[in-house]
Amino acid sequence: MNILKNKQQRTDFIFVMSVLIPIMVLFTIIRFIPILQTFGVSFFKKSMIRPERSFIGFENYTYILKDKEFIRSLMNTLFISFFSVTLSVVFGLFLAMQVNNAIIKGMKFWQAVLFIPVIVSMVPSTLMWKMLFDYNFGVVNYVLNVIGLRSIDWINNESIVRWPIVIVGIWKEMGYNMMIFFVGLKAVPHELYESADIDGATKSQKLWYITLPQIKPITLFITVMSFIKFIKVFTQAFVMTSGSQSSGNIFKTLVYYIYQQGFTFHSMGRASAASMVLLIIVFVLTWFQMRLSKD
């Protein structure tokens, strides 16, 4: 019996290692090393195309923090994140409540319809909205003209194009938030509403004193999750503002800044320093979220 157990342990050990070794090798090559390299290279002056490098301490960090383009990219990113997150959370909650209340039939169907934008890839989503916001042929300007307003150049003006970019984000995110809120609303104990009914509470009282406090943790969770997602915003901003109909004024976000430093200016050091800023923001948000979920 003892021998059998040892044999079993040995075959188990071989099985575990045959799975673990290849996966850890892969993780080392395509995750651990690149992550450590990002950290390391951020202290070096290193070109993307030439192998030599020289240690310069925090110079890349001081460069990007003084770089107006970097600050602008960061501000743009925070702007997009703030409005995309808050509005998609508010809309998501509202939609989930309506679906949950189900005062008319067929809410399951409308829920599925509302979910469709979530699965549509980012590039087609952005292109569809770009068409709707087109200066000459867009439906949005057409409606503005019909009600007697002038057309707006939505795409080529940096301070205006941020709104179509925010709208793409909300459009894709609200159905997602709706699903999570929907699960959260279903989990609110029914007895709370029943006892409130006995006490003669009105609907708005029930909303204010039961529903909202009950889903507060999930709301915080969704908000931080969305923030982590939108801090990485790149595709919708890049696709919306590149191409022939745009002036070439690409709406720069943090990830775009990394992309530009690394792949246009070939400065690996500065790109890595900017990457570290992104990483730190995401870590702080993640830490915040972990603290929230502990409470």
């Binding site: 090393i33 690149p34 790149f234 690996m268 990457s275 570290m276 992104l278 990483l279 995401v282």
Partner: peptide
Amino acid sequence: MVPFESFIVPL
């Protein structure tokens, strides 16, 4: 937790 975008340069 580490965003893919943060290590694309070395990758």
